[in-house]
Design a protein around this nucleic acid. Structure first.
Lengths: 195, 195, 195, 195
DNA sequence: TATGAATGAGTCTTCATTCAT
DNA sequence: AATGAATGAAGACTCATTCAT
């Protein structure tokens, strides 16, 4: 595959992303992709054998974006609280944008395709987030912003709550106010004494 | 539909339940149901128009069971802590029994079929659980077992965490130890001072 | 499958037979069968999973016919020579009817699908024919019609020649005169002295 | 086409030969050839329009080899019997090497593509072999090695038997012992008195 | 009520062939 | 001459749904 086709592959991944956002994973057919990309059936198969293979690339592309974003937006002088608030606000946005996220597609994909733990992107991403959050909380404790005896437990707790919020948002609906109150609850837990 | 038919309908629902447990929602075809039940295709259509309609009945039947269970098993003299522990242990069992639950089927169904809030069984069940937990925590505070300034927030938090654990268990795998540590974290939050 | 569908299955087999006669095995698609039978795609799959499965039934149906024929047409008082001549004439007819035989389809099928020896219909048929011919030649020797020191070898030889004639007829063409001369050669070999 | 191209064409033919040996004719795709040769799709089309065209060249290339071989290996002082035995041994080797021959590919090709008699390579080869064998048998009769009243009939008979053995070997399997006994039968027929 | 044969639309997948570079 | 990306027609197969009995 030459450079040119690498570009096309990227184009397919980008275009397909939107299709997965709109239809989830299970409802997407090769024809959907083909139509969205304006290419031929055979042409798509030159790059991807299945919607699953394509979806994996979509996820990985996204992962790479995410990595960039995380490191990019935080000002130097930010406190742990600031950073945590930014993180939660980001999450909130994602969770509320129900119709505009890959969340459902990812859930559907991982329900049907359970990769070995090592290869499981969702897992890797989760653990990585826990790690970062743990560091953040420890920093906050250090600086006196947070009270927390078990930073790792707290980090993990936050991640499970976020996952719960995300899935509830997609299955049963979630009002912004309920989401806010839950996120507030998370914060209060860390800065308990002061409130 | 006479009484006999009602019985048959119930039979189909019960049999189908197992099929959904095994295959989730999306992979189940009318033929799967027909084969499992040992009835004819046409026969099935007399009772259910689609796997979705059938699945709804499965969920409702389960809901009724659950209601029974919740009120049934708790001894009179139990403390709030006892009851909460029983509840969490029950949830733990369900979450670990990955292969034996309707969870994936339910997620798959609700991803594809988002009923109005009022009709959303998942939502009703969630809110009901929050309510019960709230009462429980209030009772615990009353009795001095728990320390909690926002019983409803705490109840909701527990439910979101449980939902997060459930979905993580199905998508990325969840070891019993990680599950335990998270549940412990939940308890500690309520009885913080004493540990 | 009820009695009615047994009839339909038979109808499909009979209709498909003609298709295989006309197109061989490799060129026949499920659509060809469907069109020839005037049924739906799905309908065909109710009975046969593949052209291979269908072809096997065609072969077996033919085998059964053959068995009937062999035992049916020979008059009581026939000499071994008579019977052998009838047999060879029958074979000649089949070999010349190039366009009207399953031979090519069978070859194509068995090139691509080599069943275990026990399950190989072609083989079974071949060995059975050798056996019958052996008996026939022995009878002819007994009655003084034939001279042959190795009846089984002769029987086998006849069968290999016939197979050679059949395949040559389909691949390189075979004039009636060349066929006749070869069959004559076979007969001469048995009744050598007398000619 | 310059000399260089002629070389490349030859390279393709030689490489393709092996592919046809391995997969027969019907299962070979242009991609198989392209992959085996390590050239581009378009490149292949510069030389051959189809697998059929390519296969024809493979056959012709082989034919030329064969011609060389036949004349090359026989010692001057060999008797007719010697030569016939060498020939049959050669044929035996070819027939037993089921997996390593072009036989199936050739059958498949000629089933689907029946050239006019004049152009039919198989036919030309067959007739040529009959001719050579006839001469050989005549020489054997002359020298007193063979007894045969119809050398051409005998030659033709041998060829039909060999064709029968070849096709049986590919469709129903053929043990070496059965093959040997048949070849022995052929020889006995010629040298009958002496055995 | 109940059956199960039948339908046909829809999806996946492969492959010969073309064509701009 | 040579490349290899792209095409689209064609074939396999599945499944929800209907309907005569």
């Amino acid at each position: 595959m030459g450079e040119k086709s690498e570009q096309k592959k990227q184009f397919i991944v980008d275009t397909a992303r939107q299709v997965f956002v709109e239809k989830g994973f299970r409802d997407v057919t090769m024809k959907d992709i083909v139509d969205a990309c304006g290419i031929s059936r055979g042409g798509l198969y030159l790059y991807f054998d299945s919607t699953a293979a394509l979806f994996r690339e979509v996820l990985e592309a996204q992962q790479m974006e995410k990595d960039d974003i995380f490191t990019g937006e935080i000002p130097e002088e930010a406190t742990a609280t600031d950073i945590l608030l930014v993180f939660l606000k980001e999450q909130k946005k994602e969770i509320l944008l129900r119709k505009n996220s890959l969340a459902v597609a990812a859930y559907e994909y991982f329900f049907a395709n359970k990769p070995a733990k090592k290869d499981n992107l969702l897992r890797r991403r989760f653990l990585q987030a826990v790690e970062i959050l743990t560091g953040l909380i420890e920093a906050g404790v250090e600086s006196g912003e947070f009270i927390c005896e078990d930073p790792q437990g707290a980090a993990q707790n936050i991640m499970f709550v976020l996952e719960g919020l995300r899935v509830c948002s997609q299955t049963m609906g979630l009002s912004e106010s309920r989401l806010d109150s839950e996120l507030l609850y998370l914060m209060k837990d860390l800065v308990y004494e002061e409130l």
